[in-house]
């Protein structure tokens, strides 16, 4: 049984069909990349998993439980944390309080301290700036805060929406290295990314979305060599 099983998922915005029945799986311990152009349905997929959107049809099972109708604030408690597109950190809360919000569903004080230490170890800059307001951080630091915040909820699955967006190349490399590290620590990752090259370089497997359908899937290393991918997404 896969950790996350999406089956024939259809999502509509009014009359527009954003997802036309996609199916994919994420196995425990994997990094899975969803790649595709703007408007392909990547963010829609993540938002539906997180409970921000309700599907028109199809199912989403996480750890063998149907979650497609579970409201977003309960999804986190089940072990899925989302790092949203554009980071969406709380600009007027301190770095520490942002991290505290990430642990909102966790009642255990010891678990909180343990997670905080792990996050500070992975992102030393957050420890340094813990008293600063979130809004004063640079884009790359905000991305780290958004990841740290997600990790505070002890997720089994972390879903990330465009983590490289708007970051300088140095930060992009750093963020991807951290994603890899987080994954090695036992967190399964589902990643949506326009930077297909980067995403495929750290992912185990990938799915290619085109206007609401999955058109291609395979091992990430194979897709990196695939002619169609090279042409459409890698700009080669």
């Amino acid at each position: 049984m896969a950790m996350l099983e999406v089956e024939n998922l259809e999502v509509n915005y009014g009359v527009i069909k954003a997802l036309k029945g996609i199916s994919f799986t994420v196995e425990e311990g994997e990094i899975i990349a969803l790649i595709g152009a703007n408007g392909a349905g990547k963010t829609t997929t993540l938002h539906t998993i997180s409970g921000l959107l309700s599907p028109h049809a199809g199912s989403i099972r996480f750890m063998d439980k149907e979650i497609s109708r579970v409201p977003s604030h309960k999804i986190v408690g089940m072990g899925i944390a989302q790092v949203p597109e554009g980071r969406r950190i709380f600009a007027n809360l301190s770095v520490y309080n942002n991290l505290r919000m990430g642990a909102y569903t966790r009642k255990d004080k010891e678990e909180f301290e343990r997670n905080l230490e792990t996050v500070y170890a992975s992102f030393p800059i957050l420890k340094e700036r813990r008293e600063q307001m979130g809004g004063t951080l640079s884009g790359g630091e905000q991305q780290m805060l958004a990841m740290g915040r997600a990790l505070m909820s002890s997720p089994r699955l972390m879903i990330m929406d465009e983590p490289s967006m708007g970051l300088s190349p140095i930060y992009v490399n750093e963020i991807f290295a951290i994603i890899k590290k987080v994954n090695e620590q036992g967190v399964t990752v589902l990643l949506v990314e326009q930077n297909a090259k980067k995403a495929l370089s750290i992912a185990d497997r990938a799915y290619v979305l085109e206007t609401g359908n999955i058109v291609l899937t395979g091992k990430a290393s194979d897709l990196l060599e695939d002619e169609r991918i090279k042409k459409a997404y890698l700009g080669e």
């Binding site: 604030h73 986190v76 909102y104 569903t105």
Partner: peptide
């Protein structure tokens, strides 16, 4: 704190489990 989070960004607050 949940109030502050909702006041700043309702969507992100929901993603925190609020």
């Amino acid at each position: 704190q949940a109030m502050q989070a909702v006041s700043e960004d309702r969507g992100a607050a929901g993603l925190m489990g609020i």
